[in-house]
Amino acid sequence: MASTVAQGRGADKRRALGARTAFLGPGLLYVTAFMTIPILLVVSYAFLTRGRFGGVEFPVTLENFVRALDPIYLRVLWNSIFIASATTLLALLIGYPTAYAITRLPVRWRTVALVLVVLPFWTNFLIRTYAWIVLLNSQGPVNKTLESLGLIDAPLELLYTRGAVIAGLLYAYLPLMILPVYASIERLDRSLLEAATNLGASKFWSFITVTLPLTLPGTMIGAIFVFVPSLGNFIVPELLGGGKTVMVGNLIRDQFLKARDWPFGAVLALVMVLFLAGLFAVQAIVARRINGRGARA
């Protein structure tokens, strides 16, 4: 009796293991084959020598890392961080109040507003960037409008500037700021705000002392969502910066597709990804602290 039960259990276990493998196996195998192994290959290429006909060769070297410290490349990296930060800051300044405004709309208008926020995001990225070439061109509507209003005599150089790159990136990623901020304001416990008001805080102070800190994790998520794709972007700097504004994404793209210096490209990509991973770590730590405080309170 006891042994048949044990046998039954054994068969159950085997069946469970079979089902487990059938469900989890293919997906996990796929992620490993098409993400993890490729990324590990790139990491290992960073320590190899550039091949004579593209590709890589031995010996193992750290020279590629030394080369990345050249002031030319450091300037590109700094320029990219500056542009991505400026984009994120602007997205925050426009996105936070917009998200806040959406939470104060009547419920059915909230959905409409959110759909309108994401609609442009679902249109082709190149088309959205192209729209800014049309808009900012010396013969384009912005210059024409300013001229007809008599504000300028000659067309302004709007396109192919750093400003154009920032505008293009902001346009591309603003929805990614608004959505998480909206979600965190929406989730906010209103009774905390009432408590603050009852205790005599003005609207402004209850916003500063309650709303702002409690929505900080969501805001940081939004900031990361804007910063990460901005930093690695090579399309917007190329199309709206006209090749004058080089970002780290352009550099990586060129090392892989033009210069065919894969080890150096791998180093640049590694630096970029590690920098971004650091940002995620900071966000996670801050979120844990704030959530912990909320739980105690």
Partner: peptide, 14 residues
């Protein structure tokens, strides 16, 4: 969530 550029070069390399 991984940057598309990182995935792109990884797959090209592989």
């Amino acid at each position: 969530i991984i940057p598309d550029l990182a995935l792109a070069i990884g797959l090209l390399v592989m």
